[in-house]
Design a protein around this nucleic acid. Structure first.
Lengths: 155, 155
DNA sequence: CCTTGACTTCGAGCGCGCTCGAAGACCTAC
DNA sequence: GTAGGTCTTCGAGCGCGCTCGAAGTCAAGG
């Protein structure tokens, strides 16, 4: 069970991003002690490969503090951001747009309406895709149904 | 309005593929006279570019008869198949799998159960993706909601 | 000291699904 | 006859999102 797996229920999801202007975010993981994870641990827990984690950092999606030896140390802040990134990726938000979003986040407070607009635009596109996907699925379902040999004339 | 646009309602879709073992398929278009379309016309009506139509043919998804000068002439058979291809693509079925499916179709009757299995496998994957997509969308929706500044503690 | 192994950076490579451009054949209109 | 437009084939190129490998650094264990 990785952190990036989605809950089955439609209960309101817990906030996952430090950027919400609501004080410190709720911890994402059952937190025993301060979170201070290596890249391998994050990879295992999130299902995002170490290669991809470095890639995300290279392209500016994530900034990860280092230990004295220069190795990445993920705290719950980075982890929360990563989880939100996976959610956006899961909805096929282009990397460019995710970059744009977190550029706004990293600029600090004052541009919340821009962030919001960006997210809302994306959400609307996702909803459209969702509808089309469902319709295409209906076509496939119909096809599957008619393979049974039951062929009534289509009205 | 292209042929490949999906109906909004969830009414049972009309069959779109000549491969259904139920006799001749219902016509896809309002049919005035025999269908005998050029590649440009098909591109316009379906929203699939001429380049892509040739590509689909190259990779064996579609076989299109030619006129005396060697130009492609699409009949409703090819058009129906193309429309079904767009449905499968819309659900992100990999080209390889679509190739496999139509290879079975082109082999003729006798392997319907294989085709069915292929479609059902894909359908199940799509349903899983659909659920995950919806959940990710919920996360984004929640994020959007909390940008308003209303911050209740998350239980 | 030496090995082991996990980490680092960097740039190149890959798989997918198109997308494009070049060069040429053919029909139609003038 | 010739210009224009639409088609043909073929192979190369592209954008995306990773994915990989090489070469080197560092810390812990024996």
């Amino acid at each position: 069970m990785t952190v990036t797996e989605l809950p089955r229920a439609s209960a309101p999801p817990a906030p996952v991003d430090a950027a919400t202007p609501c004080g410190p975010p709720a911890p994402v993981l059952p937190q025993d002690g301060p979170l201070w994870l290596s890249i391998a641990e994050v990879a295992e827990q999130t299902g995002v490969s170490a290669h991809t984690l470095r890639y995300y950092e290279r392209i500016g999606l994530l900034e990860v503090p280092r230990d004295h030896a220069g190795r990445r140390r993920y705290t719950n802040v980075e982890l929360a951001r990563l989880v939100f990134i996976t959610r956006l990726r899961l909805t096929a938000m282009p990397i460019r747009d995710i970059q744009a979003y977190f550029r706004l986040v990293d600029e600090g407070p004052g541009n919340e309406s821009e962030r919001l607009a960006l997210l809302e635009r994306h959400r609307n596109q996702v909803k459209i895709r969702l509808t089309a996907l469902q319709a295409a699925l209906d076509v496939i379902d119909f096809k599957i149904a008619t393979y049974g040999g039951v062929c009534e004339p289509t009205p």
